[in-house]
Nucleic acid binder design. Structure first.
Lengths: 204, 204
DNA sequence: AATAAAACCGACCAAGTGGTCGGTTGAAAA
DNA sequence: TTTTCAACCGACCACTTGGTCGGTTTTATT
């Protein structure tokens, strides 16, 4: 039991540092030794806990990325009354963490999806699945919003979800090049403008 | 003269094949040998024409990417009367080429911006500059659209440009995972919806 | 204190990597 | 025909990579 704790602690340390460096330098451009140097650990320790570099990354997806995407992008809008306010608030929060140079897992997702696309089918699938859950979650929210009278009937929920996620991932990509405060502000403003055009006109 | 022609031809062949493979497998994950094998050329030929792998990529940017972005995304909307129709048509065209698995240089741009970010400052700058020209071009179009009565006064042109480019790059990222026909359709529909909300109401 | 298993070490390996360099080739210039 | 040189060849180099493995240290159990 106690042993298991140590095992978990070391693995977790490796995963956290691994994700950090993979994210900063890219998966294929980061060597296992890069990570081990940062941790003052040896190859032996690494291959004792993980079967391979790929296996290591899969464990990072399952233990860190999945959970963070859930807690930052999925749960905050789940079951909310007003879909548009919920999405706005969620995006505002996400952009704020992104601005402060913390790991923003929505973007982590798109970043790795790009890097692994066509290069590692298994990992691509894991990442794609997370994205799909996110998308389904938004669609569900919008559909409920229709019956509740927030969202106009003619709205294509799938299309809106696609567009929102696309623009979010896109603006996060631009933000890495700097000027993130301005980009973040512009993005949130335009999202509001866009969402407004989808509202069900309130009958006074 | 004839010699110069041969030189150019070989370099061009290398650049075209290089871009194709860099795009497919990623820059850092592609070796110079990978490209040379495809071309049935030798290391000697490569380093006779280019100083380094990085130098080679810079030449690809200048000779292929810049020009394509101009001809596909910048010139088609330059000086057009109705900004929204121009943007819609331009995006439609770009998405169509993207769907047919041709190289879509708007996405090529974002793809490489992601890969080189924080890893090669010089190349990042070249790519960022292209993106900036694209952005300025859209802003100019929108501003002119205001004076011409197409675009509502309250619209933040910079914000709209950011949002359009973001969403474009984002949806292109999602498209690499498949289902591109649907995504493309959804994206274009939502762009129309969004742009509509920016129109200057016509006085009948 | 003795034991056994878990955790970790680090030298080593084969397979690549970007880049070098002395040499060959073939076509245009003399 | 001879000369010249741009264009190209491919063996080679130093270095890095993911991964292996025999051995050592830590730790909990008896």
């Amino acid at each position: 039991m106690d042993k298991n704790l140590k095992r978990m602690a070391t693995m977790h340390r490796m995963q956290v540092t691994g994700l950090e460096i993979f994210y900063k330098k890219g998966y294929y451009n980061t060597s296992v030794d890069d990570i081990l140097k940062e941790l003052s650990l040896s190859k032996g320790a690494f291959y004792y806990h993980f079967q391979s570099k790929d296996d290591f990354f899969v464990s990072i997806i399952q233990n860190l990325i999945v959970r963070k995407v859930y807690s930052l992008l999925i749960e905050p809008i789940e079951g909310k009354e007003d879909p548009f306010r919920a999405i706005e608030a969620c995006f505002e929060n996400a952009m704020s963490t992104a601005e402060h140079n913390e790991l923003d897992y929505g973007f982590v997702l798109s970043n790795f999806m790009t890097e692994f696309n066509g290069r590692n089918e298994l990992i691509s699938k894991y990442l794609r699945d997370i994205y799909k859950v996110w998308e389904v979650n938004i669609v569900t929210l919008l559909q409920k919003g229709k019956t509740d009278g927030y969202v106009a009937r003619h709205v294509d929920s799938e299309g809106v979800a696609t567009f929102l996620i696309s623009s979010y991932m896109g603006v996060r990509m631009l933000m890495v090049e700097g000027n993130s405060k301005m980009l973040s502000y512009q993005f949130l403003q335009q999202v509001k403008q866009y969402l407004k055009s989808l509202e069900q006109p309130q009958l006074a």
